[in-house]
């Protein structure tokens, strides 16, 4: 029975999604979203077992808050009939994701995500939405177009989505035991070695009379003992290193980026260049509209023959 519990949660989520996708009054939709959030919370709970897996209680709570917020915003984004609200919910998702990344000690990524996504991409989406989104009927300026109100084939989509979710759940639950052993944090310290000036400054701050440089063994200066990392100076002094000395996430990411993926950086730059060119080219095309077509666009219907001048 325990084997099927995650899948039951998936089923519940799928059913609520399906219900939420049908055109229904607001209260119904909110209820469905709430049930969906509860189901996903249940799923996460089953998978993680207990919150003690997280480092501290606060981290566990924050994890739940951020993840459920993300899921709720996602469900609401998918089912909302007004595209502008979808974009706004997406901003909420981005913020929740940033929170999760913060918990993973990837602060650079979190803020980069917020800056780029919420700050740039979403603004562009907003612009285009406001440009293109028009009311269908001038009499009712707050109604949405038909293609926003009624979804296409929710059943098939929910079914495939449910299958996908089951696949992932099964992989995660089944494969958790077969993961390779987790790494140790030694790679972080080795980066600190490479940042010699910063390393030296930090060491001399703590222990001003440390004989720099320290001895290196096996090519590494920092040794690992039972109580953590330490360095040995030339005259035998052993200095234990504090975790505060570690390079920041930004430094780590930068180091990895430039050291291990130099070509990819160049390629990413090229991609952005191409995107810029593409956008410029695409937007350049000017379409000459005749008076008749302009009237049709503005008024939303064909104009009279009288007064048609070219």
């Amino acid at each position: 029975m325990d084997l099927f519990l995650p899948y039951i949660a998936c089923v519940t989520l799928a059913l609520t999604m399906y219900a939420a996708l049908r055109p229904s009054p607001l209260s119904m939709q909110v209820t469905m979203v709430a049930i969906g959030v509860a189901a996903s919370g249940w799923l996460i709970g089953i998978v993680t077992g207990s919150l003690s897996a997280f480092n501290e209680v606060s981290h566990g709570i924050f994890f739940i808050i951020f993840s459920l917020c993300a899921v709720a915003a996602a469900i609401r984004m998918v089912t909302h009939e007004r595209p502008i609200y979808c974009a706004l919910y997406f901003v909420l998702i981005v913020v929740s994701t940033a929170g999760l990344l913060l918990m993973l000690e990837a602060e650079f990524m979190a803020f980069a995500l917020i800056i780029v996504y919420a700050g740039a991409i979403l603004i562009t989406y907003m612009f285009v939405l406001m440009l293109a989104n028009q009311a269908e009927n001038p009499e009712e300026p707050y109604s949405q177009a038909i293609y926003d109100r009624i979804p296409r084939e929710p059943a098939a989509a929910v079914a495939i989505g449910f299958l996908l979710l089951c696949l992932l759940t099964g992989t995660v639950t089944g494969g958790a035991s077969s993961l390779p052993p987790e790494g140790d944090g030694t790679s972080q310290w080795y980066v600190l070695e490479k940042l010699s000036h910063q390393f030296e400054t930090n060491v001399l701050e703590i222990a001003p009379d440390f004989a720099w440089p320290p001895i290196s063994e096996d090519g590494h200066v920092i040794q690992f003992g039972s109580s953590g990392p330490y360095i040995v100076s030339g005259d035998g002094t052993v200095l234990e290193l504090d975790e505060a000395m570690l390079p920041t996430n930004t430094q780590m990411v930068g180091w990895s980026l430039v050291n291990d993926f130099p070509v990819t950086i160049e390629l990413a730059g090229v991609i952005l260049l191409m995107a810029m060119f593409g956008a410029a080219v695409l937007a350049r095309r000017a379409i000459e509209l005749t008076e008749k077509e302009k009237r049709k666009v503005i008024l939303g219907h064909d104009s009279e023959e009288v007064g048609d001048d070219r």
């Binding site: 993300a70 996602a74 994701t97 926003d148 009624i150 979804p151 296409r152 989505g161 996908l164």
Partner: peptide
């Protein structure tokens, strides 16, 4: 995975 699945469903459903 949840975000992936929900985004997936949304991609198929919205017109």
């Amino acid at each position: 995975g949840l975000l992936l699945a929900i985004g997936f469903i949304g991609f198929f459903v919205r017109r």
